[in-house]
């Protein structure tokens, strides 16, 4: 089994050298999954399936998909968005709506009676986050590159079942 194949399964383990060619690297550590029902670890979160289905739709959008000169959806923006979600979301956090943008990036949106959160991924390491607290009417917008602590706190507090 090649390294790249061995590491396809779980993204946490891909911090091992995916680009090396050493034949001695073997399969990653896997987390056992209960065959009896849902457990706290070791299952694929529901948001992952929802997100991946949406990504498959968006990836088919080519240049000028909206008839107004928009760029094709950037795969690197999709991968980066997925990385942000993997870092920020709890397994039971609800999936965002994912909307393509004219510059090739994507916007992820969560909305509830209490808050709206929008995360615009322009390109890898370039993210704009917007939060509206509906109870107080407070708005906040900030830029992020690799650090998503505030987003994670927000999503886990407001959008996790």
């Amino acid at each position: 089994m090649s390294t790249a194949q061995a590491l396809d399964q779980w993204s946490w383990s891909d911090s091992i050298a995916a680009q090396t060619i050493d034949a001695a690297l073997r399969a990653p550590m896997a987390v056992s999954t209960s065959m009896l029902g849902r457990t706290d670890v070791g299952f694929v979160p529901e948001w992952v399936n929802v997100f991946q289905q949406r990504i498959a739709e968006l990836h088919g959008l080519r240049r000028d998909w909206d008839g107004r000169g928009s760029a094709a959806v950037r795969p690197d923006a999709l991968f980066f968005a997925y990385s942000v979600l993997g870092q920020s979301m709890a397994p039971a956090t609800v999936a965002p709506s994912v909307i393509p943008l004219g510059h090739g990036g994507v916007q992820m949106v969560w909305s509830s009676a209490d808050a709206d959160v929008e995360v615009e991924v322009v390109q890898p390491n370039e993210v704009i986050i917007y939060h509206l607290d509906k109870a107080s009417g407070t708005e906040r917008e900030w830029h992020a590159a690799t650090e998503f602590s505030d987003l994670s706190t927000l999503l886990r507090a407001v959008f996790t079942r």
Binding site: S11, V48, D76, E147, L151, S152, T153
Partner: peptide, 20 residues
């Protein structure tokens, strides 16, 4: 693609590799 991202919550969710 692989990206290192961070939160103060530590360990990220264990999720499958995204395949496009």
């Amino acid at each position: 693609p692989v990206f290192e991202t961070f939160t103060n919550g530590g360990t990220p969710s264990l999720i499958p590799q995204l395949q496009i």
